[in-house]
Design a protein around this nucleic acid. Sequence first.
DNA 1: GGAGTATGTTTCCTATCGGAAATTCATCCG
DNA 2: CGGATGAATTTCCGATAGGAAACATACTCC
Lengths: 209, 209
Amino acid sequence: MSRVREAAGNGRMIRPLSGGEPLRLEPLKLGERIRDIRRRHSWTLEEASRRTGLARSTLSKIENEQMSPTFEVVQKLAAGLEIELPQLFEATAAGGATGRRTITRQGEGRPRVTATYEHELLSVELAQRKMVPFKTRVRARSFDSFSDWVRHSGEEFLYVLEGRIAFYTEFYEPVVLAAGDSVYYDSDMGHACVSVSDDDALILWVSTA
Amino acid sequence: MSRVREAAGNGRMIRPLSGGEPLRLEPLKLGERIRDIRRRHSWTLEEASRRTGLARSTLSKIENEQMSPTFEVVQKLAAGLEIELPQLFEATAAGGATGRRTITRQGEGRPRVTATYEHELLSVELAQRKMVPFKTRVRARSFDSFSDWVRHSGEEFLYVLEGRIAFYTEFYEPVVLAAGDSVYYDSDMGHACVSVSDDDALILWVSTA
DNA sequence: GGAGTATGTTTCCTATCGGAAATTCATCCG
DNA sequence: CGGATGAATTTCCGATAGGAAACATACTCC
C-alpha cells in the first residue's frame, strides 16, 4: 500500500510537527534540516543514499554535524531529496505550521459581475493568500462592449478553459487564444480580453495578491 | 472603436523576450555568481578575503571552479558578501531578458515527467515570475503508484480540468474533486493527488514561486 | 627601463571531506 | 537466551578543500 494512502486514509496521520521536535530552523543547522526532510519522507539513510548518490556514512555525518558537506554534495542533497536549493536555506517560520486548505466546488465561487466580465472568485474563504484565482465568463462577441484597459500591480496568469478569446495588452500585438492556451503577463501593463467565439468564453485567471 | 483596439492595434511594441536564448537551466555556476557579486561591489580578492575571513587563494579557486567550497565556507561567503543564503542559489534570469508577456500554446509547455505525474510547465520563458503555472496529467487509477507527499514552501492553487481526482493533504481528510472544482492550500503541507476516473485526469496547478 | 605596488593565480602542505567496510544499536523471531 | 535482520554510527584511508606563501601580471611613478 502506498504510504500516502496509509498516511491520509486511515487514522494514522503524520502529525503536523508533533510536540517532540519543534523543527525550528535556526540560523543554519543544515544537519537537522537534512535529517528532518529525510524523516518526513520516511527515508532510511540507505534510501537517501540511493537518491543522492552519497554514501550512508556521509549522510550520517552530515546529519550529525560531524562534517561540512562541500557545495557539490549540497547540490546532490537538494536534488536527491527533491527540494529546491534556495528552499534548503530558507528560514521557514516553522513552529506551528498549520496548513490551510479550502475547496471551491464547481460554480460555488463568489460571483462578481461587471459590464464586460462575469467573474467567479474562487477560494474566497481563505484570507491572506498570495494568489487570487477566479474564473471568468467572457460574453460572446463582446468585442465592442468595453472601453479601457484593466491595470493593477502584480502579475497574472490566464488560462483559456473554453472558447476563443482575443487577448489585448499594451505594447504587444493582440493575440487569439484558444482553449488550452495560456498567457502570463505583468498586470500593470494594461490588458483586456474579448470573446471571439460564438459562445461565451471561459477563462481561469490567477493574480498575485 | 474601443480604446483597447486602438491601443493594442498600433505598432508600438516593446520587444518581448529576446528570442535567441532558450533560458538554459544552469547547474548553478557558484563561482561565476560569487565573482559577479564581488565585482559588482568592486571588491578585490583581498577585500573579499577580509570580509569573509577566507584566504585569497581560496576565493580565487572557488571563483574559477577549481574547488567546491564546503558548506561552512559557503556560509562565510554569504555573510561576507552581504547576501542572503537562499538568494545565492536562486536561479537568476540568466539573460536578463525581462519579458512582460509570454504565451504558451496548448501542449507547448515544457514537459516534466515523473513516476506519478506528467507535468507540463507553462510560461517557462518568463524568468522571475511570482507564480509557476503548470498543467498535469495524472494517470488513470494511479492510486497505488506513488508513495509519498509532495511538499514545498509556498501556496498552491489547483483546478481540475478533466476527470476526477482524489486530493490528499496532511491534516485533512482526502477529498474527491471533479472537473471545475478547485482547491487552494499551503503547499508546505504534504499533498498528493491520484486519478479516480477511468481516464487520466488533467489538472491546472499554480504555485507561488 | 627598473623599482614599487596592487591584483589575481598557482604552488605546496595539512586538515578534513567522503566512501567502503566494520561496528554498534535496535528489533524481531526461534 | 542466541541468531538474524535492518537501521545508524563509527572507523579507516585515499582524495581534496583551504591557507600560507610564492609566483605571475599587470599598472603606476620616477
